[in-house]
Amino acid sequence: MGKTEKLTVRKQERLDKYLSAELKTTRNQIEALIKSGYVKVNGKTVKKGGIKLKVGETIEIEYPEVRKSEAKEPGFDVEIIYEDEDILVLNKPSGVTVHPAPSVKEPTLVDWLKKRGVSLSTISGEERHGIVHRIDKETSGVLVIAKNDSAHLSLSKQLQDKSMGRYYLAIIEPPLKEDTVVEKPIGRNPKNRIKMAVVPNGREAKTAFAKIALSKDQKTELIGAKLFTGRTHQIRVHLNAIGRHILGDCLYGFKSRSDKIKRVFLHAYILYLRHPKTGTKMRFVAPLPDDMREFLKKRFDWESINEKIVPEQFDTIFDSVS
């Protein structure tokens, strides 16, 4: 077991809500710790976040250790964009799942981190060491890893107050009629549990989409996407809701062609945040992967695209839709 933290309850409240406020992290992360048996109240392990606390009770959190030996051997490598003693910024390849889950059989990004002996935060529980936010398996691009719990708490708070975020690039068909914002609730698809969907009782979700460049035949388009919330498959679901599909995304409506696009052409291009220790504003860029770059060079005006996706000015393409 890793480090232990003790808290004395100062007001009556639900356990999960109280810990989320005290540790300045998300309820999902707290729930993961509770369900994994890492939280005790008055010396007894609790497994439900909804229990009511009483003033004066003692909460004990035992953060799990990273066990390198348990990691699967990854058959891939990951580009490191930036690293210091608090954070690690990576360019995740398409096809790599971020963290283990019961349905995941192949090695994950967490396995890659463990095998390389990277120091990781443990506040998200045993299966999600260091993971502050995630990217879909099919999506490539920039991702930040917390190397200690202090950094993890700071970055989680930034996610909540929107001072940390990402800009995406996607190749879609058909093209957008105009720049637009989609604000529709997202939840599990009632007819297909693998998919997400716009559903009346779903969680609030908002995405901005901005036109960047049309292909030479004007049938496909490179667009930018900005997330205001972080729901599973959010960009893909919101595009599907307005009759657009990301190339390669067969799960959400793309029809395969003879050229056999082998993965979803969605890339997390830019990550912005404040350094968890110094507070310095930082911006990281994950270069376009080779397959998306080659597709754009072949079917678009590549020089024009380069002028429009300059990282330092990328925010401005959303000026009319944010």
Rank of each mutant, 00 (worst) to 15 (best):
I171Q: 14
T45C: 02
V78S: 13
F300T: 06
D136Y: 04
D111F: 04
S320T: 15
E173S: 08
L120R: 03
E65P: 08
K260W: 12
T220F: 05
Y18M: 02
P102I: 05
I61R: 02
K157D: 03
E178M: 06
Q160Y: 05
M164I: 11
K54N: 15
P100V: 03
P174W: 10
A71H: 10
D179E: 02
E79W: 09
D217L: 01
H267F: 04
E138W: 07
S103T: 14
G248D: 14
E204R: 13
G141E: 00
G187K: 07
G56Y: 00
W112M: 06
F228S: 02
E221N: 05
A286P: 09
D301E: 14
K17V: 14
D291N: 11
K162H: 11
L109D: 05
G202F: 07
T280R: 15
T139M: 10
D77N: 14
E303R: 11
I145A: 04
G50W: 01
D301F: 04
T229F: 12
V39C: 04
I81T: 10
F284W: 13
I145C: 03
L113Y: 08
V181I: 11
Q158L: 08
E65R: 02
V39I: 08
R257S: 14
T58A: 01
S304T: 11
F284N: 06
E138V: 07
G230A: 02
K52M: 03
R263M: 06
H233Q: 02
P74V: 11
A241G: 13
L90I: 13
K147E: 00
T180P: 00
A286D: 09
T26R: 03
F318I: 12
I34T: 00
V237C: 04
N240C: 08
M164K: 09
A210M: 09
P102R: 01
L222Y: 01
D319S: 10
R257M: 13
S69C: 02
E204F: 15
L90E: 02
F228H: 09
D291V: 12
D301Y: 06
A286L: 02
A268L: 03
V199W: 03
W112P: 01
